[in-house]
């Protein structure tokens, strides 16, 4: 796993973006960028050459679920790994995210250890 990979954090709450950013920094990922919903994330993804997306689900403008579907439908972005970090904990939502092609799903509140484990798992599987 490349610690210099470029990561986009998408969450409408600045506090949560900061928490995720700090946790990623503690895990050695310093190349992080932020967007406050799907609509601001898409232009960044189109031009930014990102390696990984960490997104919330419930956001105004465009939800993380719609962002995930957009990424999977875009030929340029379709292989981009997406980790969902969200308070949405209904089973049907988790199943829907899995069917839409999410790479990992973390429910808030979460710990640094869970974030680390999921990121490692995602890249283990990709690099296989």
């Amino acid at each position: 796993m490349n610690k210099d990979m470029k990561i986009l954090i998408v969450d409408d709450f600045a506090t949560m973006r900061r928490i995720v950013k700090n946790l990623l920094r503690d895990l050695g990922f310093n190349n992080t960028h932020e967007a406050d919903d799907g609509l601001t994330a898409i232009p960044m993804l189109n031009t930014g050459n990102f390696d990984f997306v960490v997104t919330d689900w419930n956001m105004p403008g465009m939800t993380g679920f719609d962002l995930l579907k957009h990424i999977r439908a875009d030929p340029e972005l379709k292989d981009l790994p997406v980790l969902m970090v969200t308070a949405e904990s209904k089973r049907e939502q988790i199943v829907a995210a899995a069917q839409a092609g999410v790479n990992g799903y973390i429910v808030k509140p979460f710990t640094a250890a869970v974030l680390k484990e999921k990121i490692e798992k995602i890249f283990e599987r990709i690099e296989k």
């Binding site: 689900w57 308070a87 949405e88 904990s89 209904k90 089973r91």
Partner: peptide, 17 residues
């Protein structure tokens, strides 16, 4: 999306705890 589940344990099977 409906945000954080309140009383997830009591809601039974539709929500993970």
């Amino acid at each position: 999306p409906e945000g954080p589940a309140i009383n997830a344990e009591k809601r039974g099977i539709d929500v993970v705890s």
